[in-house]
Structure formats: C-alpha cells, structure tokens
Computed example of a mutant assay.
Amino acid sequence: MKKFLVMAALAIGSFANAQKGTILVGGNIGYTSEKSEYRFTESKTNEFSFSPKVGYQFHENWTVGGEFTVASSKSGFTGDEQKRNAFKAGAFVRYSVPLSQTFSVFADMGAGFQNAKVKNYDNGSLDSKSKADGLYLGVTPALFINIKKGFGLNFSIGGLGYETLSYDNNGPDVNSFYFNFGQTFNIGISKNF
C-alpha cells in the first residue's frame, strides 16, 4: 500500500510538472436554454456561445492568458422576439489541481470588456435596435479529462459572475450578478504545447 501511494504521488507530480512552461490553447462551446410561463404565455430563451482562449502555464498549477467569447441568443413571448449578439474580450487566470494522470479540476477567473447588440421584433417586423458596452468578471470551476499528451476535454456546468452594460441613446444601465450552476452546460477541448 505504501509503494502504491508513493507511485501515485509521483505520477501526479510528473503530470503537473510536464505542463509547466507550456502554451494552453482551448475553447468551449456553450448552450443555455430557459423556459417560463406568464399568464398563459410561454417565454423561451436559447443561447449559443463560443469561447476560445490562449494562455501560458508559468507554474505547475497556474496559467494566465487571453480569452474572448462570441454569443448569440433568441428570446421572447409569442409574437414578440428579441435577438442578441454579444462579444467579450479579456484576460483569465487558471488554477489547476491534478487528481491523477487522467483527471484535473480547475477554476478560471476572467475579466474584461463586453458589448451587445440587441434587436427587438414585434410580430416579425423590426421594432427597435440598441447597443451596449460594459465590463464582466466571472469564475468558472471545471473538470479536465486528459485524453493523450496534454490534449483533453473540459466540462463545466456553470459559474458565478458580475456584469455591467450601459446602453446607448439614454438606455438603461444594467448591473447583474449571476450564479448559474446547473443551468448551463459547457464542453470544450484544450491542448498544452
């Protein structure tokens, strides 16, 4: 038993050391769906997102780099619809803990700039357009499965964060805090070079 524990510790240590000084390239594809009813009218929201990132692993457990996200959503009640396109660009820091040669858990903290373009439709015709700029801050815990030589899959089911958006033409200023564990699902791939 003692030999097994020593071998397991060496395996975990060798996995962590093999990643130090490498470049991380990865990305996630996300999907969010929400359905609600109000006074016998159903509202539905669907959002797709793509989030690539590139970073440098300067320590066994720490990676720092840049990220951006492109997202598109569609929501509304019957007859009224809203289409939204969003873009985020910023930096992230990742803390990773290897559990074995195959599995690691990590948490990404990202912050940066964001903007959104929104189009509102009333019975199929364009009713209004607006644009917004703001900032974001978020923390996302995830699981990494090493498939082969630093190439693997990332899985997350939400996170928490804070966002601001200031709309043009005297539009509203929006500040939102979110805690969406279990409401979103992200899957991605990453590779350390």
Rank of each mutant, 00 (worst) to 15 (best):
M1H: 13
K2E: 14
F4E: 12
L5V: 07
M7A: 15
A8G: 08
A8C: 09
A9F: 09
A9W: 09
L10R: 07
G13S: 13
S14T: 15
F15S: 10
A16D: 12
G21E: 00
L24A: 00
G26T: 01
G27N: 00
G27A: 00
N28Q: 06
I29W: 05
I29A: 14
I29S: 03
G30D: 02
S36G: 12
S36I: 08
R39M: 13
F40T: 13
F40Q: 15
T41E: 10
N46L: 15
F48T: 10
S49R: 07
F50T: 08
F50I: 14
V54W: 00
V54H: 01
Q57W: 01
H59I: 05
W62E: 03
T63C: 04
V64R: 05
V64D: 05
G66F: 02
E67C: 10
A71W: 06
A71H: 07
K74M: 14
T78G: 10
T78M: 11
Q82M: 12
R84T: 06
N85H: 03
A86C: 02
A89C: 01
G90I: 00
A91R: 02
V93R: 02
V93P: 02
Y95S: 10
P98Q: 11
S100K: 08
T102D: 12
F103V: 04
S104I: 07
S104Q: 09
V105H: 03
V105M: 06
G110Y: 10
A111L: 12
G112Q: 11
Q114R: 14
K117V: 09
K117Y: 15
K119Q: 14
D122I: 10
N123Q: 13
L126M: 05
D127M: 09
K129R: 08
K129W: 03
S130K: 05
S130I: 04
S130P: 04
K131I: 06
K131V: 06
A132S: 09
A132E: 06
D133A: 07
L135S: 13
Y136T: 04
Y136D: 03
G138F: 10
P141H: 05
A142D: 05
A142V: 03
I147D: 06
K149T: 04
K149F: 06
G150Q: 01
F151C: 06
G152Y: 02
L153Q: 03
N154V: 02
I157T: 14
G158W: 00
G158F: 01
G159K: 00
G159I: 01
Y162F: 00
E163T: 01
S166W: 01
Y167A: 00
D168E: 04
P172E: 09
D173A: 07
S176Y: 11
F179Q: 14
I187M: 11
S190D: 06
S190Q: 07
